[in-house]
Design a protein around this nucleic acid. Structure first.
Lengths: 149, 149
DNA sequence: TATAATGATACCATTTTGGTATCATTATAC
DNA sequence: GTATAATGATACCAAAATGGTATCATTATA
C-alpha cells in the first residue's frame, strides 16, 4: 500500500489540534494525545520533532507545553508530511537519481517526477488554517435526544 | 520517504521492456532481467505476478517466455503500481475508514482522499504505449567513435 | 528424452515501523 | 527553596515489511 506512515498521520492530528485552539494557546502532550488518540509516549516524540522542525514553540517546566510557532495559515500538510516522513519522493530515483543506472534513459523516471510534483503541489496548498476552519463548523453528530437547535 | 517500493519499480521496468518489443514478442525472464537490471529470482516472481494480474500471457516449456496480454496503450502506470503495491491510499483511512475513530469528524481525512485522487488520476493517464514511444527515440549516448549517423 | 522455460512457494536476513521506558533538565507553584 | 509537572534526548524492543534467494514441480519444445 502506498501510504504515509502512522506517525505522519499522528503528527497531522496534533498540529490540527493546535491550529484549532485560540492563537497562542499552550497545550500539553497529555491533553493533545488524549484528544487526538495518539499513544502518549509517541506523542512525546512527535511534539519534540515538530518543535525541532520549527512548527512549535516549547514551554518547559510545570505549567508548560507547546504552542504554534507559525501561523496555521502558513503551515501546509506537505511540510508536515515531509518533516515526519522525509521527502514525498514517489520513487527513489526522484531523490537519488545517481543510484539508478537507467535513469538517464528511462522514460518512466520523468513520470515519477511529474506525478510527485502533482502530489506535492496539492499537499502544499492545504493549510492547517483551512483544516482548522473546517473542523470548527458545527458537528454532524445528531443528538439522540433530538435536534441540535 | 513516501515512495513506491523497489518491486514496483522493477515491475514497471519489466512492463516497459515488453511494451518496447514489436507486438506479440515473447520475452524470457532471463532476457528482461538482464536488460532491465532486475535480480533474476525477483524478476521470476514479478513476471508471475504480472501474468496472474492479467498483464502478461505466459508461454511455458522450452522456448517459452512472456508476452503482453493487453495493448500497452491500455495499461496505465497506476494499474501496475496497484497490482504490485496494493492501493495508492496515501493514508490508511482512505482505504479503511472504519479503522479510524476520528474519521467522521476529521477535516484532514477528505484532504487525504482528494490528494490521493489527484495522484491516482495522474498515474492513470500514463500509458505504457506513451512510455515505450518515448523510449524508442534515438538514444543520447554519443558514440565515442563519433557521430551516430 | 534431455532441456529450457515457467508455477508455486518456502525461506531468510535486514530494515523499518510503531511503540515503550528512562534519565536528565527546566521552570513554575506553593 | 523545594516538590512537582512539564519537556529533551535517547535507548530499547517486538513485530511487520522488504528485498532477495532457493527449490521442487510442471510443461512443452528441440
Amino acid at each position: 500500500m502506498l501510504t504515509i506512515n502512522r506517525k505522519t498521520d499522528y503528527a497531522a492530528r496534533i498540529l490540527l489540534h493546535l491550529a484549532m485552539q485560540p492563537p497562542g494557546t499552550t497545550v500539553t502532550v497529555q491533553e493533545a494525545a488524549q484528544a487526538r488518540l495518539v499513544p502518549y509516549p509517541l506523542a512525546r516524540r512527535l511534539f519534540s520533532l515538530l518543535a525541532n522542525a520549527g512548527f512549535l514553540k516549547t514551554h518547559r517546566g510545570k505549567g508548560g507545553g507547546f504552542s504554534l510557532a507559525r501561523s496555521p495559515a502558513e503551515i501546509s500538510l506537505l511540510e508536515v508530511v515531509e518533516a515526519v516522513e522525509g521527502p514525498v519522493a514517489l520513487n527513489r530515483c526522484t531523490v537519488e537519481p545517481q543510484e539508478c543506472p537507467l535513469v538517464s534513459d528511462c522514460p518512466v523516471h520523468e513520470e515519477w517526477v511529474k506525478a510527485r510534483d502533482v502530489l506535492r503541489d496539492y499537499l502544499g496548498r492545504v493549510s492547517f488554517q483551512q483544516l482548522a476552519e473546517r473542523a470548527i463548523q458545527p458537528r454532524n453528530h445528531p443528538d439522540p435526544r433530538g435536534g441540535a437547535q
